[in-house]
Nucleic acid binder design. Structure first.
Lengths: 230, 230
DNA sequence: GCAAATTAATGATTTATTCAAG
DNA sequence: CTTGAATAAATCATTAATTTGC
């Protein structure tokens, strides 16, 4: 089941209220006292207020308000079609895909934030792209590549040799595992980076001994001081 | 299988190289140098510091370098015991838990980024905490609460009525689903917020029609200009 | 009574599934 | 039907309880 694991982190974001359910809302309570908010158990398709299917994403009124959030947490409900280029879903350009596949073939499986940052920056040259797109791309590609292999393996087995598709379910489980990164089997500790107490990062040292996987390809030329300056 | 879904987003982060395998690396390593800091892996009451199989986390050499990454992507490999308060894992204080549980009971299931931001800020009063901790807490709590219910339900069924544990596997599947948020069944679109092209956020309007759920309670008092100024 | 060993909880990460845009 | 996006389930790892030997 588990293959390997580079690292990566799951985060949260938040959105607004889709058609019906919205964020339960926290506290109200905190302060005052328990408000009988009966929220909890919202009914499934319950009446909701407003919309059958409208999906509307939400954005914040004043972005500045959420500045922090969006910065640190990739915050926010914006998703809606932003005036400028808001096309809901990312559409990778051929060039972008080319690069991504190259990296994948090179052995990259689950890039960490820094890597994603860099990849994103590089790919941004070929079109609009965000870090999450890169993240998702690797996740999906990895998973689907695996699926594909599994299916292929099953087919091979069932056709070339005997074994009827009796236990097709988990027979070829650890096949593809061999190829890919393999390295260590233990999970690494990922991190989100410090969100609030950034202060602690004083003496941090980097070990960064990359090169453990199969490949050690370099990401990109790593143009020196070219960053977005942020 | 799928229960409901508020929204939330998965993100990535990155870490360094644990004992043996390390990130494939992108760029060989940006700077170079890798310091083998070994530490971590403390057993419950274990001695700490120093260990054979030390798990060592890594951090970046110069944080400034990765500023961007850490900002946007919660970057970074730091995880090591940071001089200041770096105790690997978050340890919720009783007060923090109290608030979290209250919110959970209040119906909060998967807070979005904004909510998490606020909760985090609020909980920070009671001790060190980061957004990811809140995020994870809800994920885990939700999942484990579900598990608990399922197990309980199974037990109840098997003891009170008949039905032997024949199909215990998915018999009680949709039990707990009823209570919780239920709302719509379709998946909402979460978002990460724009990571790079923040520029687009110009005219964003907020729909923010909270109140679509059952409750519309407010998160926290939302103290005005009190933020960490960031 | 204390500290090492064991176990129980639970924080953090990864993988599998599902949903839906194009 | 492909695949980007999002969520839930499974898993791993670490810390706190608890037990055990002295």
């Amino acid at each position: 089941m588990r293959l390997h694991h580079y690292f990566h982190v799951a985060y949260l974001d938040k959105a607004a209220s889709p058609s019906s359910s919205s964020p339960p809302s926290i506290s109200q309570s905190l302060n005052s006292s328990a408000i009988p908010l009966a929220l909890q158990c919202l009914r499934p398709l319950a009446p909701k207020i407003s919309f059958p299917e409208a999906r509307k994403m939400v954005v914040l009124p004043q972005f500045s308000r959420v500045r922090n959030a969006s910065r640190l947490l990739n915050c926010t409900l914006l998703q809606v079609q932003v005036p400028t280029g808001g096309t809901t879903r990312w559409n990778p350009s051929p060039d972008q895909i080319k690069v991504l596949e190259m990296l994948y073939r090179g052995g990259m499986r689950t890039p960490n934030s820094f890597q994603i940052e860099q990849i994103t920056e590089e790919l941004a040259k070929y079109g609009r792209i965000e870090g999450k797109n890169v993240f998702y791309w690797f996740q999906n590609h990895k998973a689907r590549e695996r699926q594909k292999q599994k299916r292929a393996a099953l087919l091979t087995l069932s056709t070339t040799s005997c074994l009827p598709p009796a236990e097709t379910k988990d027979g070829v489980e650890k096949k593809e595992e061999a190829c890919e990164d393999a390295s260590s089997r233990k999970r690494k500790c990922r991190t989100w980076g410090d969100v609030n107490g950034g202060d602690a990062a004083t003496t941090t040292e980097v070990v960064a001994d990359f090169a453990d996987d199969d490949v050690t390809l370099e990401l990109f030329p790593l143009r020196p001081g070219q960053g977005k300056a942020n």
